[in-house]
Amino acid sequence: MIGGVLESLYGLFGEWWIIPRLIEMFVVVSIIIGFISVAAMFLIWWERKISAHIQVRFGPMRVGGWHGWAQSIADGIKLLLKEDIIPARADRPIFILAPMVVFASALAAYVVIPFGPGLIVQDLNIGILYIIAISSLAVLGIIMAGWSSNNKYAALGALRSAAQAVSYEIPLIISLLGPLLIVGSLSMTKIVEAQYVPFILVQPLAFLIYFTCAVAETNRLPFDIPEAESELVAGFHVEYSGMRFAIFFMAEYANMFVVCAIATTVFLGGWKGPLLPPVAWFLIKTFFLLFVMMWLRWTLTRTRVDQLMNVAWKVLLPLAFVNLGITGLVMLLYPVG
């Protein structure tokens, strides 16, 4: 209905139709950025509380009154007001561009996340392919950051990141192919609609592989070797400070949300669920997965580079292929519909 109203409004502009289109795009992007910022801030606060309670402490308790809920906002303002430091020997244009690339790739992925029926910015028919393609761009930003910082630790972190992203993207995509075979479409909405039962019950192995790879893709413990602070100090963003650092930080949480949203869409039945409205179900499922990611981070030990590669190439990739093969075989023998 809203779409119809908008269309008739656009008609008023005649051949100047581009103006309302641009306004619409601006509004939509603002909403996404607003959502990402709020979600990232909430996630940062939430992670601090979860880690604190795992580690027998309280975490932030002061700012804002109730359990320090405003801590992230205060931190954000502090980072915004901080001096912007660029190392003298850094490659300035690339150094400035790098956080934008990382954040832009995280931002663009939100275009096809189906928060509810119809609640999707653009239901592309290649939705999931688009997400995977776009989120791979983040590695580019990380390598740019590592290279332009002119710092050996940053360079090492960037190299590790490149190796890790290349290794983990492959089993990640192949694990997604199983459910996609069943659906027969790349559209995010269609994938949700096709799930009469959540695909996690049909494809448990694919879910495990996907989730492991997703943790690695977002550089979280136990796979956080690109930024391993006890080895590489902070890895690729060691020279960043102030708002540029904050953008990296926000992009990390935005990416976390994206990978968990994909897992929810593909494996947990998306917005489907009884009683509560669809958006609530989608968010509940996604935030549960985010909680699991945080839980893992504060319990496990960091893996080593060689072990990380071994797991990707010798364990996850063959398993993903086996899963894909079995799915294909079953589809062939018992064609649905």
Binding site: S51, Q55, V56, S230, W298, T299, L300, T301, R302
Partner: peptide, 16 residues
């Protein structure tokens, strides 16, 4: 040592 290996939680537990 847990911190060196990337395990933060054991650090806090031992400090307790």
């Amino acid at each position: 040592f847990g911190l060196d290996l990337g395990n933060f939680t054991i650090f806090m537990w031992c400090f307790r």
